[in-house]
Nucleic acid binder design. Structure first.
Lengths: 121, 121
DNA sequence: ACTTGACTTAGAGCGCGCTCCAACTCCCAG
DNA sequence: CTGGGAGTTGGAGCGCGCTCTAAGTCAAGT
């Protein structure tokens, strides 16, 4: 797969894919074709897809790099990887709770305006 | 109230409070005491508390400025303010949904590691 | 032979939201 | 009179995550 195809598939830009590689997020730098262009494997694409989910859920580039480093070190790091993801999981859940709580304030305010528009206050 | 007291109460720093003011987020610049120091009113503190909730739920500074501008223009802008908050509300809900969905991937991965650690794969 | 287009690199630039610095004023306690 | 502490200002700086630019290579199409 070319960089453009992976970009298409993952929703990232080619720029971002190169940036992620420089940032140490890949399991290994994708091999190059004769012309020096990156040739992504299916596994690369899957890995990047996972990265986009972690990213979308708020994981920092630095944390993803730590995760990638563990993954590169092989099977011995299952427990560490699990812990990293569990820590992230807790953060995501906390964030969801936070959002829900903030949403209540927004809802309250919306309702207030609704009543004011109807002339009740 | 002094800037330090408001900072204390809202969890923001004095730096950030001045920044918010410069950014046009206040209903009106807080009045000054004889020494030129800001004297926040109770209403200011409440407004800032609302800002922090909007901020925490992901509203941008620019959107908060638009909201503040509407609020400054008075009662005629209730509908516009309501619409702004409703748009934000939709974004927050979408974000919560996104997080929930990403969380599934994280959970799946965690479970995978759990099984690998137990030697099932 | 020439153009087009997809890729390569190193490195610069950007938007956001703070965060801090330097230099200053003011007031109060010792 | 001298610190120390809390505030003031304009403006610089920073960390993050991209995002883009410049200059180049290479392959295919006309």
């Amino acid at each position: 797969m070319t960089i453009a195809q992976v970009a298409q598939r993952t929703g990232l830009t080619a720029h971002t894919l190169r940036y992620y590689e420089r940032a140490g997020l890949m399991l290994e730098p994708p091999p190059r074709g004769d012309n020096g262009h990156r040739r992504y494997t299916e596994r690369d694409a899957d890995w990047i897809a996972l990265l986009t989910r972690l990213r979308a859920s708020g994981m920092s580039i630095a944390a993803m790099r730590r995760y990638a480093e563990l993954a590169r070190r092989g099977q011995g790091t299952y427990a560490a990887r699990k812990e990293l993801l569990e820590a992230h999981r807790a953060e995501v859940i906390a964030k969801i709770e936070q959002l829900r709580s903030d949403l209540e304030t927004v809802d309250y305010k919306i309702d207030l305006y609704r009543r004011r528009i109807r002339g009740e206050e």
